[in-house]
Design a protein around this nucleic acid. Structure first.
Lengths: 181, 181
DNA sequence: TATCATTTTCAATAGTTATTGAAAGGATTG
DNA sequence: CAATCCTTTCAATAACTATTGAAAATGATA
């Protein structure tokens, strides 16, 4: 270990990143592969991944593909080599922007769409209403609109993140903290 | 349905919120209970929850407790009633702050701690190094520090969110969008 | 203290998701 | 075009997570 601190640190980080991935919607193995590629100095091939994480070929293949779909890992071809190599996005700011954007698409937009349908239902209900339940309708409408409003703010922040590069982000964060803290 | 738009909308929202919860680390049932309580005009008791979501007593009990641990649901006692009632946080801004804070505690802090251990390993490695691998050590150190830096910015934003109330947030978001967009 | 209402626990089970490994599919080479 | 090298697929299975329901614990009431 003391001869191989890079290896020791790599192992430690991969394990923890995998555990954390599991608490997101990402499977442990997928997160481990991501960590491995993030730390690797050079692109790795499927066999490297299989060997270093002790996983099957099938699992490596499927998880590498999923990471590609997330936009977190890219395929790399090497001249004179049939193998495909894989390389992770190394810019952390870019990486988190990708994750945020993807999660918004998968997790926020469906909610927004559903709430809009709910609001339409309530609005129908108001139109042909006997009059006894207007208060209920309005109360519930407010609860839906509150979530919608929050989703809007989330979107603004995601946009903001896309537009601010990492170098700008640190001073911006500091400035904001100053402003409100 | 057309007589009960509130019910129809409730059902729709609960289902979707549950599905989304599943893509977070939250179980579908836990998210459904949360949605049910969020939309309810008054606190509900365990039997209400069981009945409305068709789940067992055990499941209701355990998930209500978990929601309590998250700080998203509170127990309410009613005078002259032995039953316990449950009420969800209704302020969406507060609700998301709670979620964000809890997720940071569970998902960001362990990473920070691990990276600090990794950096310590690398620093040991540098001290008694033969000299051949300094470049590797430095490269990897940068990758760890990049993540750490991002975690810091995340923390700043969480803090920011705590300090900004919902009413302030909308104009702030608008201002930021103006500024950068 | 006994009784009754309610909540919690937990072992068994059901349900879900991840992984494997072998076979099929593609692509490149000689 | 056959051989080789590599990737993908997918049915079987392993691993994990959630749910149930009945029994135990809690705690209020009389």
């Amino acid at each position: 270990m003391s001869q191989e601190p890079v290896l020791a640190a790599t192992t430690l980080f991969i394990r923890r990143w995998g555990e954390m991935g599991a608490t997101w919607g990402i499977s442990r193995t997928m997160a481990e592969i991501h960590a491995l590629l993030y730390l690797a100095s050079d692109p790795l091939c499927t066999d490297d991944v299989m060997e270093q994480l002790s996983i099957s070929r099938g699992s490596a293949s499927m998880n590498l593909r999923a990471l590609g779909n997330w936009g977190l890992v890219q395929r790399v071809h090497r001249r004179g080599d049939r193998k495909e190599y894989f390389e992770a996005e190394k810019d952390v700011w870019q990486m988190f922007e990708t994750i945020l954007r993807e999660r918004r698409r998968r997790e926020v937009l469906p909610i927004v769409e559903t709430i809009e349908r709910c609001l339409a239902l309530l609005s129908d209900g108001k139109r042909n209403n006997d009059g006894t339940k207007v208060k209920d309708l309005n109360e519930q409408e407010k609860r839906f609109r509150d979530i919608l409003e929050f989703c809007d703010i989330l979107n603004t922040f995601t946009e903001l993140m896309s537009k601010v590069s990492r170098d700008e982000a640190k001073p911006l964060a500091a400035a904001l903290q100053e402003l409100v803290g």
